[in-house]
């Protein structure tokens, strides 16, 4: 385990809004190839935490070491250049372009060709874009207008875009929100296999406990801005405090994942 490099190290991260502590002194680490879930009740500070990691929000105090660099105060695009891919809770893609063009734009940016006024985008990194689309199973849709895709396919396209800068770390905000149960499992299975293969670290937030318990190597539980538990799915499931404030009786997710039912 000690041979695996640490991708992300968060120390004492805090943020408050108008006297309300949204995030209080959160610390954790994430290693290459590891899939880490961040869960907690609505309003526990997950989004704030996430926004601070990807540069959309400035922490009041604390440190974020991302791939060996202190990233506090950097803009999202600078953090992306370090090798961080993102997906959003509500998919963010370019609806007036084709599926392939969506990925090509990301590749154009990665190749630092954004201010190339004269080249042809259609020819730029065409194969690489196709390869990424094949990787997420979207190769057959490459020439389709992105605006016509079904929701589940948009999620996969977003994953392909997020992989365009050959990231070392993926930040996924509720990656399976709004998807059908089977689509959820398939998307996370795909993500997990890519992450393990390429040794990418994944940090994701999620409310679907079936997805979390199935795919997370480790789980962080946030409540009222503080980390209240951290550990393997079994440990978190068995934690009475987590059950009291978050998991509840376990009536609304798969029985297999309830406490004592085994993995």
């Amino acid at each position: 385990m000690s041979m695996v490099p640490t991708l992300l190290k968060v120390e004492g991260l805090s943020k408050s809004y108008g006297g309300v502590h949204a995030v209080r002194s959160v610390s954790f680490e994430l290693r290459a190839g590891e899939i880490l879930a961040l869960i907690g009740p609505n309003g526990a500070g997950k989004s704030t935490c996430f926004d601070m990691l990807n540069g959309q929000n400035m922490p009041d105090s604390g440190r974020i070491h991302l791939l060996g660099e202190d990233t506090v105060g950097r803009k999202p695009r600078a953090i992306w250049r370090l090798g961080v891919g993102r997906t959003f809770q509500i998919t963010a893609t370019f609806p007036t372009m084709t599926v392939r063009e969506n990925v090509q734009v990301a590749l154009v940016s990665y190749g630092r060709q954004l201010f190339n006024l004269w080249g042809s985008t259609a020819a730029y990194a065409r194969e690489e874009a196709g390869r990424l689309l094949d990787l997420v199973g979207m190769g057959a849709y490459a020439e389709r207008p992105c605006g016509e895709l079904a929701y589940g396919d948009l999620k996969r396209l977003e994953l392909a875009i997020a992989l365009a800068n050959q990231p070392r770390l993926l930040l996924m905000d509720e990656p399976t929100a709004g998807m059908a149960p089977r689509e959820r499992i398939e998307l996370m299975r795909l993500t997990a296999s890519i992450a393990r293969e390429q040794s990418i670290g994944v940090l994701f937030t999620e409310h679907d406990m079936d997805v979390v318990f199935e795919h997370a190597d480790r789980i962080l539980v946030l409540n009222r801005g503080s980390l209240i538990a951290e550990g393997s799915p079994e440990e978190v499931r068995g934690n009475p405090q987590v059950r009291a404030i978050y998991l509840g009786e376990g009536l609304v997710y798969d029985a297999r994942h309830r406490e004592g039912a085994g993995a």
Binding site: K75, T93, M97, Y110, W118, T121
Partner: peptide
């Protein structure tokens, strides 16, 4: 051109374009 696509990307989704380094 790549620039034209970057410009359209910014128009279509500011959030996504910032997240791919534009």
């Amino acid at each position: 051109s790549p620039f034209g696509f970057a410009l359209r990307a910014t128009r279509d989704s500011p959030l996504r374009s910032e997240a791919i380094g534009i």
